[in-house]
Write a protein that binds this DNA or RNA. Structure first.
Lengths: 216, 216
DNA sequence: CTAAATTCTGGCCATGCGGTCAAAAAATCA
DNA sequence: TGATTTTTTGACCGCATGGCCAGAATTTAG
């Protein structure tokens, strides 16, 4: 009766530990199918049955590889989130001035959006809809703390270097992130919209907003 | 066999036409209960049963007064939306300069948020989640067009008067709206956050971003 | 090749959903 | 008052959902 079948049995296991290759592949496949389903049908429309159908497997397979729908959704978020962060972070770091970093962050985000439409839609859907069993949002605004802190650090550096004027860096970070997120949402609704031009306009706007009075 | 009981039977009837007082009162009561339920439990958690429970009535009453859940949700949106617009619009109009109007819009929105937390949460939930029978979002980003156009007109006026520099007014309008919306979301997540200070910071940021080079 | 472990299938379950309805209750009318 | 209309109730329907599991299929190990 020992050694039950539960590859995903080790609950609350952050790292993926010792997972066989085919196990990892199946999980990746299911996650990909989930992203597609959520992007097309919305969070509520992405049932396990529909995700399984997209993946070309039986519904039970998902239950076999994931503890439940909630774990699936959390894995989807983790996958997308880390991937996006890995892409954006280095772009910012290699700039000479802080203003250039801010601009690079915005333009880099726009470029990333082009190739990851479904992932970002799915991310938003899950953020907005996934809830804990007691009904509270699973990913509240608090989940954006790391993002906010990174942006705050960036803007504070600009203040320290004298590039930027004095302002509340937290409000700035929140606004910056919101503007970038919405740029994506707007482009999603109006696909013919020029994403890169939007990004340039936005960078101009934000940098003008924080630029130190003397610098020109 | 004529004269069936269907107070809400006149489908696609924009105005409320001839509705008895008690009929209007019941509808208002149900809409209020729906707002509370959505704000607390999210869109998915706000079932007809739970809304009815909150209103202290039987579930069937909702079906009697509304054609279906979708109509209820649309009425909720209409109620909230018109109420908010009525509050914000005059504030903007009575300002001397365009910059003052922009500032008034942001500060006015912040003030409004304080007294209408649940309404605005519910509005967001419905915008993000209500879908037509074929699965498409009922209120896409296109629903914000009137807002965007009003803001564009405002910023264009500033450009015409020479207060503002040249920039893409559409990007500006989208960004402005996003920043205001997110100010609300952030305050919701961090209730101790100083909403009015945030609004002032945001107004400074946006106005600095668009201010004409010479003006100071 | 055989045995054991892993993975997959397809059907089943309880739950909650939106919606419907006959009948009861309440309000209105004559 | 009694007759008629409006409103409410509470039970019920069909359906989709997330989850479960016995057994079959497949892969791996000895």
């Amino acid at each position: 009766m020992r050694s039950k079948n539960q590859p995903s049995g080790r609950k609350s296991d952050g790292g993926q530990g010792d997972r066989s290759f085919i196990e990892q592949a199946r999980r990746a496949q299911i996650i990909a199918a989930a992203i597609g389903a959520i992007a097309e049908l919305g969070f509520a429309g992405a049932s396990l049955a529909r995700i399984a159908e997209r993946a070309g497997i039986s519904k039970g397979v998902i239950s076999y590889h994931f503890a439940g729908k909630d774990e699936l959704m959390e894995q989807v978020v983790e996958r997308i989130y880390t991937d996006a962060a890995e892409h954006t972070a280095p772009l910012v770091a290699e700039q000479a001035t802080v203003a250039a970093s801010v601009r690079a962050h915005i333009l880099g985000a726009a470029e990333y959006m082009r190739g990851h439409r479904d992932q970002l839609i799915a991310l938003g859907e899950i953020f907005n809809n996934l809830r804990t069993p007691d009904g509270k949002p699973r990913f509240g605004a608090h989940s954006s703390e790391p993002l906010y802190q990174a942006l705050e650090a960036l803007y504070r550096a600009g203040q320290a270097s004298g590039e930027f004027r004095a302002f509340d860096t937290r409000v700035m970070a929140v606004t910056h992130q919101a503007a970038v997120d919405t740029m994506f949402g707007y482009w999603t609704a109006y696909p013919e919209h020029d994403l890169e031009a939007h990004a340039r306009q936005l960078a101009d706007l934000l940098l003008n907003g924080v630029r130190a009075p003397g610098a020109d």
